[in-house]
């Protein structure tokens, strides 16, 4: 039996809009993945700790506050320090175009702005994590 992909979905930072994170969680669940939903107001340290304990294959971060350029690097650094550099990170939310290449350069595997279909996200994750 092939094991289901395990994906952590979290909202770092202080904005309280979790609808997007929930819609994506549900879509991943319906695509046969095990989603560990961490919820609102998570610090990068909390996200890294949960990713480690749950031994996830990927981490999805939903950020609508504009703080992505601060929060995302801290999550990436924390994952590296915890020995989790193989965990793929993807980001959803309101990310200005000029920030996209910078985030990619840092090591974010995928960035999904408003209007992205859940199908696109599911396919992307499957492709990125094929073989894990």
């Amino acid at each position: 039996m092939s094991k289901p992909l395990r994906i952590l979905i979290a909202k770092p930072g202080l904005d309280g809009h979790d609808r997007g994170a929930k819609v994506v969680s549900r879509a991943l669940r319906d695509a046969g993945m095990e989603v560990i939903y961490l919820g609102l107001r998570q610090t990068p340290e909390m996200i890294v700790e949960a990713a480690l304990q749950e031994d996830v294959d990927g981490v999805g971060l939903s950020i609508l506050s504009g703080a992505h350029m601060t929060l995302v690097p801290r999550v990436l650094k924390g994952l590296r320090e915890a020995g989790l550099e193989h965990v793929k990170v993807f980001v959803g939310g309101v990310i200005p175009d000029e920030d996209v290449p910078v985030l990619r350069e840092m090591g974010v595997a995928g960035i999904f702005g408003p209007g992205t279909s859940t199908h696109t996200i599911v396919e992307f994750i499957r492709q990125q994590l094929a073989g894990s």
């Binding site: 993945m33 095990e34 939903y37 919820g39």
Partner: peptide
């Protein structure tokens, strides 16, 4: 698939 949501109530234990 599954949605594992119990950690949402366990934030106090982080760290």
């Amino acid at each position: 698939g599954a949605l594992l949501g119990d950690r949402v109530r366990m934030h106090d234990l982080a760290g």
